[in-house]
């Protein structure tokens, strides 16, 4: 069940430092939205505010509204743990749990959230691994340690782990930056399939990747180091890469920057 995200007037802080300022945007269900922009402009910080992972960082705090369909994630009485079950996340570096097997890694989200029957769990693990295009590669070594897989396989394992809990939204923080081109291609294909089931938001430094996988693209920038990052514009990917409405976007995309 993909859901719509509607952000309005969002500020995020690290202690007293304002990292991103006044961001408003909408993310449509069943779409892939890419965040691009120079390093340090707050893309990842913004992504982490969408499942309340920002406040895990000591000193992290958020002002503003993030609506998931019709519920404000920062409203009173909202449980961040419940939010993270509905908004899953894949990180920059593959991070399978080192003490767990491939199977246990995928089942981790369900197991750690309560007990599940073995047969049902088997089904979910297989479905998730198939969903992450990893089943054929690991079906014979489900009980081997997850950290024994290659980097690209580990990242797909992390995607399988994230989708096993059936979230509504999947956030990906530069999921391919540590991978070789072939693994990157595998994950990009996967993103195309996953958007049938989830709303996907992806941060990337690779503009070709943003152009290949996303429907909408948001460009972030910051005025200077130490200044807060801002959303410059968000539009259909095709338009951003062919005819952006802001000069800074065009400069960044064409490499005429700084």
């Amino acid at each position: 069940m993909a859901k719509r995200i509607d952000v309005s007037g969002l500020n995020a802080y690290y202690g007293s430092f304002l990292a991103i300022e006044d961001i408003s945007m909408a993310v449509e269900p069943h779409s892939v939205t890419a965040f691009i922009g120079p390093s340090g402009c707050g893309k990842s910080t913004f992504l982490r505010t969408l499942n309340r992972m920002h406040e895990v960082t000591p000193g992290g705090r958020v002002e503003g509204k993030v609506m998931l369909d019709d519920e404000n994630l920062y409203g009173a009485g909202i449980d961040p743990v419940a939010v993270r079950r509905e908004v899953g996340m894949v990180f920059q570096r593959p991070n399978p749990f080192p003490t767990m097997s491939v199977y246990d890694n995928v089942a981790a989200g369900l197991r750690l959230n309560g007990s599940h029957r073995k047969a049902a769990l088997d089904d979910i693990v297989e479905k998730s691994l198939r969903g992450a295009n990893l089943w054929n590669e690991v079906k014979d070594r489900l009980n081997k340690p997850g950290s024994g897989l290659s980097g690209g396989q580990q990242q797909r394992l992390c995607i399988a782990r994230a989708i096993a809990v059936e979230p509504d939204v999947l956030l990906m923080d530069e999921p391919c930056s540590a991978l070789d081109p072939i693994s990157t291609l595998a994950i990009e294909d996967l993103i195309g399939e996953l958007k049938e089931r989830f709303t996907i938001v992806i941060v990337t430094h690779n503009m070709q990747q943003a152009a290949r996988v996303s429907d909408r693209t948001a460009f972030f920038n910051l005025a200077a180091v130490g200044r807060p990052g801002k959303l410059i514009e968000i539009d259909d990917t095709e338009r951003i890469f062919s005819n952006p409405s802001v000069q800074a976007t065009e400069d960044y995309i064409s490499g005429r920057f700084g």
Partner: peptide, 27 residues
Amino acid sequence: VPNELREASLALGVPKWRTILKVVLPT
């Protein structure tokens, strides 16, 4: 224990105490 493991677990919607019990301590 790398912070990424804690974040991976938290991002799955696992409460903090369970993350410590099932991910941090076994590691």
